[in-house]
Structure formats: C-alpha cells, structure tokens
Simulated assay, not measured.
Amino acid sequence: MTPAVRALEAAGIDFHLTEYAHDPRAEAFGEEAAKALGLASQTVFKTLLAKLDDGRLVVALVPVSARLDLKALARAAGARKATLAEPAFAERTTGYVVGGISPLGQKKRLQTFLDDSAMALSTLHVSGGRRGLEIGLAPDDLVALTGARPVTLART
C-alpha cells in the first residue's frame, strides 16, 4: 500500500486501483499507463513538480496527451517563471520515484494546480505512488484532498 492509497482511505474517498505490468524501458510513463489500461490519454494525468522563480515548489497535473505550459503555471502561482524540477529533487521532495509520483500522499504538501480539463471528467487517473499503479477518482475528490486549483495548464 502506497502513501497515496493510505491518504485516500483515511479521507474516506471513493476510488479504484488498476495495475499493469510496467515496462522498465518505458520513458513516457503516463502514456504507458493509458495504453496498458486502455484509457483515453486525456483522462490520465501526469504529476509534475516545478520550481518557481521565488524558490517555491508546486505540483502541476496535466493530461499525458499534453505538455505543461510553464508560463501558465507561473502566472497561476503568482510568479514570473517556472521550470521543471530535476527528477532527483522531485523524488526526494515527494517520496516517490519518477514515473510513480502521485499528487496524493507526498512527503511535503505543496501547492497544487490541476489542468481545468479534468473538471469535465467523471473520473480521472493519477499515479498510485509507484510505476504500474493508477488511481481512478472523481476530479472534485482530487481537488478536495490536495487543495488543487483548476486552471488552464495544458498545451497540445
């Protein structure tokens, strides 16, 4: 059981877990999950950490079919600039490995931004806290548990 699953259970949130055999050669972890589970790529969200020019770290969730608009993230966070955090730094900060970083149950709670396309979905999927494990839940429940702010973050 991962910290993400424990956080959902502790909050009493309705969710479902799906597992797949992770290919260690895979580089696009979210796209691998979508394909392996037969999910539409716009319903599977990748969790990215970004560093703002004022030194803060934030979490951004965007569909795996899109790229994160760093300028939009910076604006939403009230900063001038945002850059993706180095993978090793993201792992140390969240307690998860890259490809398995969940927005839930992170070691340190960070301000979180969710691409607003998620709010039109009945269910979205995020990493369950390890490669090969996905959590399906309602967008409103993700927002409630993480304090995420829905904003436009995705670029295609």
Rank of each mutant, 00 (worst) to 15 (best):
E91M: 05
L110M: 13
G55S: 13
L114G: 08
A28M: 00
V126P: 03
L48V: 08
L121W: 08
D69R: 14
G128K: 10
Q42A: 07
S117P: 06
A50M: 09
G38T: 01
R92C: 08
A40M: 04
L57A: 14
F29S: 02
V97E: 11
A36V: 06
A90N: 01
V59S: 07
P139D: 13
G95R: 01
A50L: 14
H125E: 04
T43N: 12
R67A: 15
L104C: 10
K81N: 05
L52E: 12
L104A: 10
P87R: 06
L61N: 07
K46N: 05
A85E: 12
L110C: 09
K71S: 14
S117W: 04
S65R: 08
S122G: 15
G132V: 08
D115T: 09
S117D: 09
V62C: 11
P139W: 07
I135M: 13
L73G: 11
F89Y: 14
R109Y: 04
M119P: 00
H125C: 08
A28I: 05
D53V: 11
K81P: 03
A118G: 12
D23N: 15
K51H: 05
F113Q: 03
V44C: 06
L124C: 05
F45Q: 00
D116G: 07
L73T: 09
R109N: 06
A50F: 11
G99C: 02
L52W: 13
R92P: 02
V98T: 12
K81T: 10
D23E: 12
M119N: 06
R75V: 12
D116C: 12
L61S: 07
S41Q: 11
A40C: 02
R130M: 08
L48A: 03
A77R: 13
D54W: 11
S65W: 04
L57S: 13
D115W: 11
L121Q: 15
V58R: 09
A66G: 01
R25L: 13
K35Q: 12
S41G: 00
K35Y: 03
A34N: 04
T93I: 04
R25K: 13
G136E: 09
T83V: 15
V58P: 08
V97P: 07
S127W: 07
G78I: 02
G100N: 02
A90W: 07
G78P: 01
R80V: 03
V58E: 05
V64G: 04
R75S: 13
L70E: 15
A85Q: 08
A72H: 04
P24S: 10
P139S: 10
R130E: 14
D140V: 06
F89V: 15
D23A: 03
R109A: 15
D140Q: 15
R75Y: 05
R25G: 02
A50C: 15
L84C: 04
A90Q: 02
D23G: 07
F45N: 02
E31K: 03
L110Q: 08
A66V: 00
L68S: 14
I101S: 01
P24Q: 06
L104R: 08
